[in-house]
Amino acid sequence: MKKVIVLILLAVVAYYLVDVFSQIKFGENRFQGENVRDFYLDKSKNDLHVSNSVTSIVVNFRGFDTLGEVTVLFLAATALGSVLYRRKAHGEAVLFNASTIVRSGAHLLFAPILLLGAYVFIHGHLSPGGGFQGGTIIATGFLLMLLAYHDYKVSHGVLTWVESLAGLTFASLGLTGLILGKTFLENFLPIGTINDLFSGGIIPIIYIAVGFKVGAELTGVLYTMLNEKEYKKS
């Protein structure tokens, strides 16, 4: 009976979704004259000298929003720690040691994965990628190690320091713009030539900070979750 009700509800939702989106032509140029897309693309190319315009939107035009976004990530990591906290931290580990092949392979791949993550967030303003993507790649490296070695330890102190310093860098770069008589998060460094590694002013620096922050936070989340112990009923 409940399934029937749910299916009727979903049919109504589907009807309206299809009705709305059949009126938006896929791949059609909907912008005429002055529009937000061309404005962003033009600004990104000529005023900021950032070749990846998604990066310039995320970090510059909507930089304040990104600051809120990393705050949400930080809050999620903190909430996870406080929800899963247990005073007595002994019990049977859920994880077991992987085989020798997996362990050696994980050891071999760990450094290249970190390098790839660093490459992705350092070149966030030049090629597809950026702080969030690079940080996630770094966290997958730590996930691999955590899965291969059941007693792999990540220091929460170091993670907190990396996270705090990266967040502080982001906020203080924004405030420096404010102090120099511009707006919050406005660029105050030379912008260089487009498609150089050192171009775009503060955008690469902020994205590198975001990369460190996201990497540390995701590693912390994975570590907290994987450290969950099996407790016997007593």
């Binding site: 896929f26 791949g27 059609e28 140029n29 693309l41 990104s44 190319k45 070749s51 990846n52 315009s53 998604v54 030049l126 090629s127 597809p128 487009i194 498609n195």
Partner: peptide, 12 residues
């Protein structure tokens, strides 16, 4: 998406 459009990256 834009028909025939490239990724919004000003690569060389």
């Amino acid at each position: 998406y834009l028909k025939g459009g490239t990724a919004p990256i000003f690569s060389p």
